[in-house]
Design a protein around this nucleic acid. Structure first.
Length: 483
RNA sequence: GGCCUCAUGGUCAAGCGGUUAAGACGUCGCCCUCUCACGGCGAAAACCGGGGUUCGAGUCCCCGUGGGGCUACCA
C-alpha cells in the first residue's frame, strides 16, 4: 500500500487591515481540512507590497485566529521547518528562484520603463506586454545588469496552447495562454509579486492543497506553468466562492462591512461566528447546522463545498449566536455577558444572577443586554393607557383597585422571590374575584411603567426588591387617584 | 472589450436522470403563558429563459440572460 502524502494547507493573508469574514473562512477551511486529514496547517504572511502594509494588521491576524480557535502548526510567531514564514524576510530566496526560472526559460529580464509600457496600452488602458525584452541577447542583458539598470523579471508565457487543471471545487478549468500576459514576477524593488511568491513558497513549504478565493481561478494556469518550468509537482487547488454582502458586492472592510472583530464587539458569540461562516459555502453530509469546531473538523469535506457565492445573512448568525447563549451554563453566560452588563444603567443596582437568568433566553447577541434592562432605572410616571389590555381584561380602573391591594399583599410576602410572589398575587386575584391576568398585568405595568418587560410581574418584583416595589406601587396608585 | 466562473424559496442550503423538490434562518398563524422571550405545532415561499440529449431533466449538453472574478511592478 502506498503511503498517502501528508496534507499541508496554508492560510496566507496579506497584512493590510482587519480580518474579513471571507479571509477568516478561507483560514477556517484550510484548518478544518488539515485537521480532518491529520495534516498540517501553516500561517504565512504575504507582505511583499510595502505600500499596503498596515502596522497592526499582523497582530490582528494572530489575535483573530487565536480567538476563533484556529490554531496553526507552523507560522511566523511559532516557527517551523520551512521558515521564515514572512515573505518580506525571504527576498533572497525569491531572487534566487527567479534567476533559476530565467535560466530555465520560464522567465526573462525586462528593462522596459513606464513610458514604453504605457505606450502599449490603448485608450482604455488595455494592452499587454509585447515580450520586447525576451528578445534581448544574453550579452545585452548582462550589459544592462552590469550598468545597474532597473529591471523586473517577467514570466515567459507561451504564445500558443492552453493550460488547464482540475480544481477540487470547480472541476476542470482551462485558459488559453494567449489570454495570459507576461506578468511581473520580481519587482524592480527586488520583492516578488504574489504571482511568484505564492508559487515558490507553496512549493518550498510543501503545500499539498492550495485553498484560496476564487479570484485566482483563472490565474492558476500561469502558476502551473511555473511549477512545470521548475519541474515541481503541482499542488491540488481548492478555490472558494466569495462571500457577498448582497447580490452585487463582496463583503469587504472597504465598504464598512463587519469584520470578525466587529461582530465580536457587537456581542455575537465567537463560536457562533465560526460555526456560521463554516456554513457559508459548505454544508455537512448530514445537514447539521449547530456544530462546534471539533465537530466541524470531524465532518469537514471538500465535497461539501459549494461553487456559488453566498450572501452573508446577519439574522441567521444572530439566531445561531442565540442558540449558543441558550445552551451555555449560567456561569459561562455570566462570564461572557459581564462586559455588556456593565454598560447598563442597571449594573450594580440589582442582583446580577437574577438579571442574567432573565436575560439568557431573551438575548441573541450580548450587546442587546443594556437596552433590555436599562428600563429598570428609568422608572417615571406610568402612562395610564398601559393598564389597558383587552386580552387581560384590564384597564386603569381595574388598576386603581388592584394596586393598593397588591401593595399590601407584597408587603406581607415572607420570601420576596418569584414563586411565592406569584402565588401571592394569584391568590390575591382569586380573593377579589379577578382573573390572574388582571392583577398580574396591572402590577407589572405599575412596577415597570412598560408595556413589555423581560419577565412577568413576580419576576420583575423579585428583581426590584420589596422597597422599590412598595414605593412604585404607591406612586403608581397615587398617580391614578389624581387622574 | 477579452478570458475564467457561477445560477434551487427573501437568505443559507439538500438534491448528483425518475422525489409530493429536504432542512435551517427570516416572515406569518396557532398553542403554551404573569406581558416579552423560550418552547411546541403549522403555513406561505424556489429549480433564470430557450433549445437540445433521453422513455423521463432541477440534475447532462448548447445558446441566451443575469451575477461575480481576472485582465497591476495589489494580493
Amino acid at each position: 500500500m502506498q503511503d498517502k502524502k501528508e496534507v499541508r494547507t496554508r492560510f496566507a493573508p496579506s497584512p493590510t487591515g482587519y480580518m474579513h469574514i471571507g479571509n477568516l473562512r478561507t483560514a477556517l477551511y484550510g484548518y478544518l481540512f488539515a485537521r480532518k486529514e491529520g495534516g498540517k496547517f501553516i500561517l504565512r504572511l504575504e507582505d511583499t507590497d510595502a505600500k499596503r502594509y498596515v502596522a497592526d494588521a499582523v497582530q490582528i491576524i494572530y489575535d483573530t485566529l487565536k480567538d476563533a480557535g484556529i490554531g496553526y502548526d507552523e507560522g511566523p510567531d511559532i516557527g517551523g521547518p520551512c521558515g521564515p514564514y514572512v515573505q518580506s524576510e525571504r527576498a533572497d530566496i525569491y531572487k534566487q528562484y527567479a534567476e533559476e526560472l530565467v535560466a530555465r526559460g520560464g522567465a526573462y529580464y525586462c528593462f522596459c520603463g513606464k513610458e514604453r509600457l504605457d505606450s502599449l496600452k490603448d485608450e482604455n488602458g488595455v494592452g499587454r506586454y509585447d515580450k520586447h525584452c525576451l528578445h534581448l541577447s544574453p550579452e545585452e542583458v548582462q550589459k544592462k545588469l552590469a550598468a545597474g539598470e532597473p529591471y523586473v523579471i517577467r514570466q515567459n508565457v507561451p504564445e500558443e496552447g492552453s493550460g488547464s487543471y482540475d480544481d477540487l471545487v470547480y472541476g476542470h478549468v482551462s485558459v488559453d495562454f494567449k489570454d495570459i500576459e507576461d506578468g511581473v514576477l520580481l519587482k524592480s524593488d527586488g520583492m516578488p509579486t504574489y504571482n511568484f511568491a505564492n508559487v515558490v513558497d507553496d512549493h518550498l513549504m510543501g503545500i499539498t492543497h492550495v485553498i484560496r478565493g476564487s479570484e485566482y481561478l483563472s490565474s492558476t494556469p500561469k502558476y502551473n506553468l511555473m511549477y512545470d518550468a521548475f519541474g515541481w509537482e503541482r499542488p491540488q487547488y481548492v478555490h472558494l466562492p466569495p462571500i457577498m454582502k448582497n447580490a452585487h458586492e463582496k463583503l469587504s472592510k472597504r465598504n464598512g462591512d463587519a469584520s470578525y472583530q466587529d461582530l465580536v464587539q457587537k456581542g455575537y458569540i465567537e463560536e457562533a461566528i465560526v460555526n456560521y461562516i463554516a456554513l457559508l459555502g459548505w454544508s455537512p453530509k448530514d445537514n447539521r447546522e449547530k456544530m462546534s469546531l471539533a465537530e466541524l473538523c470531524e465532518s469537514f469535506s471538500l465535497a461539501g463545498i459549494n461553487k456559488s457565492p453566498a450572501i452573508f445573512d446577519e439574522p441567521k448568525l444572530r439566531w445561531l449566536s442565540g442558540e449558543y447563549i441558550k445552551e451555555m451554563s449560567a456561569e459561562e453566560f455570566a462570564r461572557r455577558a459581564r462586559p455588556f452588563l456593565q454598560r447598563s444603567k442597571a449594573f450594580g443596582k440589582y442582583d446580577e444572577a437574577k438579571l442574567l437568568r432573565i436575560l439568557q433566553t431573551r438575548v441573541e447577541i450580548l450587546s442587546e443586554i443594556p437596552a433590555k434592562i436599562d428600563f429598570l432605572e428609568e422608572y417615571g410616571p406610568v402612562d395610564p393607557a398601559l393598564y389597558t389590555n383587552k386580552k387581560m381584561k384590564t384597564d386603569a380602573s381595574v388598576a386603581r383597585a388592584v394596586l393598593p391591594w397588591a401593595k399590601d399583599c407584597l408587603a406581607g410576602v415572607a420570601a420576596f422571590e418569584n414563586a411565592p410572589l406569584y402565588e401571592a398575587l394569584v391568590a390575591l386575584a382569586q380573593e377579589h374575584g379577578l382573573k390572574n391576568g388582571q392583577v398580574l398585568w396591572c402590577v407589572r405595568v405599575a412596577l415597570t411603567g412598560r408595556e413589555n418587560t423581560p419577565g412577568g410581574a413576580s419576576e420583575m418584583a423579585e428583581l426590584l426588591g420589596r422597597e422599590r416595589c412598595l414605593a412604585r406601587l404607591a406612586a403608581a396608585s397615587a398617580q391614578l387617584e389624581q387622574a
